[in-house]
Simulated assay, not measured.
Amino acid sequence: MEAKCSPATLLLLLSSSLWMLLLLLQAPSMVSCHEEMKSIYVGQQVLPMRIGRPAFGPESLAFDHRGGGPYTGVSNGRVLRWRGARRGWAEFAHNYKHATVAECAAKKKLVVPESACGRPLGLQFHRASGDLYFADAYLGLMRVGRRGGLARAVATEAGGAPLNFVNGVDIDQETGHVYFTDSSAAYQRSDYMMIILTGDATGRLLRYDPSTGNATVLASGLAFPNGVALSADGSHVVVAETASCRLLRHWLRGPRAGSTEPFADLPGYPDNVRRDDGRGGYWVALNRDKSWAADGTTPRSVAAVRVRAEDGAAAEALRGLGNATVSEVLEREGALWLGSVDTPYVGLFRISEL
Rank of each mutant, 00 (worst) to 15 (best):
A3H: 08
S6V: 02
L10A: 04
W19P: 02
M20N: 15
L22P: 09
L23G: 11
Q26C: 01
Q26T: 04
M49E: 09
A55I: 06
A55W: 03
G57I: 09
P58M: 05
P58Q: 01
P58W: 02
P58E: 02
H65D: 06
G67F: 00
G68I: 00
G68T: 06
G77N: 05
G77T: 01
L80D: 02
G84A: 08
A85K: 13
W89C: 12
F92P: 06
K97N: 12
A99P: 08
V101P: 07
E103K: 15
C104E: 00
C104S: 09
A106N: 09
A106L: 14
S115I: 14
C117Q: 02
P120F: 08
L123S: 06
Q124N: 10
G130Y: 09
G130M: 07
F134R: 01
G140V: 10
G140Y: 09
A151I: 01
G168R: 01
D170W: 02
I171T: 11
I171P: 05
D172H: 05
Y179H: 10
T181H: 00
S184R: 08
S184C: 11
A186Y: 09
I195A: 09
L197I: 07
L197S: 14
A201N: 11
T202S: 15
P210F: 13
T212L: 12
G213T: 07
G213E: 07
A215P: 02
L222F: 02
L222D: 01
N226P: 00
V228R: 05
V237D: 08
A243C: 04
S244P: 07
P255A: 06
G258C: 04
T260F: 05
D276A: 05
D276M: 10
W283I: 13
R288L: 11
A293D: 10
A293Y: 06
G296T: 12
R300W: 11
E310G: 08
A314H: 03
A315Q: 12
E316I: 11
L318F: 07
R319Q: 12
T325K: 10
V326W: 03
S327Y: 01
S327F: 08
S327M: 08
L330S: 13
L330I: 11
E333L: 13
V341K: 05
S352Q: 15
E353I: 09
